[in-house]
Amino acid sequence: MDIKDIIKEENKVYGKTPVLTDNVMHYCPGCSHGVVHKLIAEVIEEMGIQDKTIGVSPVGCAVLAYNYLDIDWEEAAHGRAPALATAIKRLNPDKYVFTYQGDGDLASIGCGEIMHACNRGENIVVIFINNAIYGMTGGQMAPTTLLGMVTATTPYGRNAELNGYPLRLTELLAQLDGTCYVTRQSVQNPASVRKAKKAIQKAFENSMKKKGTSFVEIVGTCNSGWKMNPVKANQWMEENMFAKYPLGDIKDI
């Protein structure tokens, strides 16, 4: 049998969405970013909104997210993506506007912007990747770093007295009247990937309903920063991260 007999449309079981570019991702093998990028791209394709979507990328590992999704993008200063998205959406209410931010960007330096964008109920989507570490700058402590967790700036483990406590920002944002949908998901296995995709789709659909801000946290791994292989990192996440950051919808109205 020739290979051409196999590669046929009727035999196709999976295809890469054209909303993902052909650029090779710079993410480490095992990183959660690639999966989440793909889910967003698929949602954009399935909703048919490629020409109506504007993404805002952060500072952190996803700074180059604009290389991977074939949509118009704005690259924000560190932490300020929700401010950009606020103006983009208010000036272009017919567009789907989302920010893609990590835990350092969103929960540390950008804590003010995310709070106020959510509190104003901006009709945007926020995708929050929480891997409890600063990946791009080389594995320093993030606001979401667990107690006892070793990072480049907590070489003896995060200590509450010295460094404070892991910040559960998602629960805080759920308290705000401006948010309509707040959920925490993960992408470490097929079942969780399917659920995460549904959550992202719901968030995008909300953004035209004038209901307020939709916030999707994805608890992810950083096997490089955590210094574990991808399998071990997923296992460690399930055993440790989910205890502090339990999965599921926190708010859905």
Binding site: V56, A76, R80, A83, L84, A85, T86, A87, R90, K95
Partner: peptide, 26 residues
């Protein structure tokens, strides 16, 4: 015209970045 009281000057200028990036006069 959109008029918004931002939470800080830092947010304001980044809102300009966002809006200007879409070709609007902000």
């Amino acid at each position: 015209m959109v008029v918004l009281q931002a939470e800080s000057e830092i947010a304001s200028i980044n809102m300009l970045y966002g809006g200007a990036g879409t070709g609007k006069r902000v």
